[in-house]
Design a protein around this nucleic acid. Structure first.
Length: 106
DNA sequence: CACTTGACGTCTT
DNA sequence: TAAGACGCCAAGT
């Protein structure tokens, strides 16, 4: 993707309040690129660890942490819990409680 | 040009 | 509610 896409997505990512989470699809839509959820994932996957981006506040639309079973998933779960986010049974996040923006998650 | 590959999402069973 | 099929779209081969 181009630089404009990256800037737009990053802006939305940084807008997520601590203690809340958003999803790839929602981020893409808010950034002005509907149906580009996979591209948001690609972007975050390539995000340098040292960039300081709150990439861990992004989960799938169903509240699942991406790529379950990988070290990355365990790490994200840790960061989220540190952020005060409780994972329900099955390692699922309740988006009705932690989702952001609230009106998007109903 | 045809086909595959994703940190995904929606609709049907 | 859970699991599968299908759809999506830019990039890579």
């Amino acid at each position: 993707m181009d630089a404009a896409f990256e800037r737009a997505v990053l802006a939305q990512l940084l807008a997520i309040p601590p203690g809340r989470v958003s999803s790839y699809g929602v981020l893409a839509a808010l950034a002005g690129y509907p149906r580009h959820a996979r591209h948001v994932g690609k972007l975050l996957a390539s995000a340098p660890e040292g960039a300081g981006w709150p990439w861990f506040r992004v989960v799938s639309g169903s509240g699942h942490i991406a790529r379950p079973g990988t070290p990355q998933a365990d790490y994200q779960r840790l960061l989220l819990e540190e952020d005060g986010i409780e994972l329900g049974r099955n390692g699922r996040i309740d988006l009705r409680r932690y989702g952001w923006p609230a009106d998007f998650m109903r």
